[in-house]
């Protein structure tokens, strides 16, 4: 019965790239406990890391006085993550496509593309400082 109850949590994380570790481990453990596949766990892990780096670097601009708030809910069917920084926000439509032309050879700018590729639903708040992303649980591949 307890395994069917959704896991809900809200954490406040410092604006350091390495600060995500403990929260990330908790989220991935919750996914494993709910029977998400290794591919799901890889996808959520990657999206979390990319979203957090964006929040810390581009949102809070590494300001140690600013925090990132991560709210997440994991149930039997999906994980929903909402990540909010204290930055001014941005317009995701203005981020150039890193797969096109000279952008392909730029060392940065692939985080949002990967988040969109690995999560099933990705949306930003109007201000652009809060990201909501959802991934639905995959069906496990039958063995044999």
């Amino acid at each position: 019965m307890a395994a069917e109850m959704p896991v809900r949590c809200s954490v406040i994380v410092e604006s350091r790239p390495s600060a995500l570790g403990p929260s990330c481990r908790e989220i991935l453990a919750a996914l494993e406990a709910k029977g998400f596949t290794p591919d799901d766990i890889f996808a959520v892990h990657l999206a979390l890391e990319e979203a957090f780096l964006n929040a810390v670097k581009h949102g809070n601009r590494m300001d140690p006085t600013k925090k990132v708030v991560i709210d997440y809910t994991v149930d039997q069917e999906k994980i929903e993550i909402c990540m909010t920084d204290e930055g001014p926000g941005f317009d995701p439509r203005r981020i150039p496509d890193p797969r096109v032309g000279e952008n392909l050879y730029r060392p940065e700018g692939r985080g949002l593309l990967l988040i969109r590729a690995y999560m099933h639903n990705v949306e930003y708040s109007e201000r652009g400082n809060s990201l909501r992303m959802v991934r639905c649980k995959s069906q496990p591949v039958p063995k044999g």
Binding site: H45, L46, E50, Y105, R106, P107, E108, R110
Partner: peptide, 16 residues
């Protein structure tokens, strides 16, 4: 087994 997009940037830099 796992890398972030920062590693892709690293590879671009090394390649150059």
């Amino acid at each position: 087994r796992f890398l972030s997009s920062a590693v892709l940037g690293l590879l671009i830099r090394i390649s150059k």
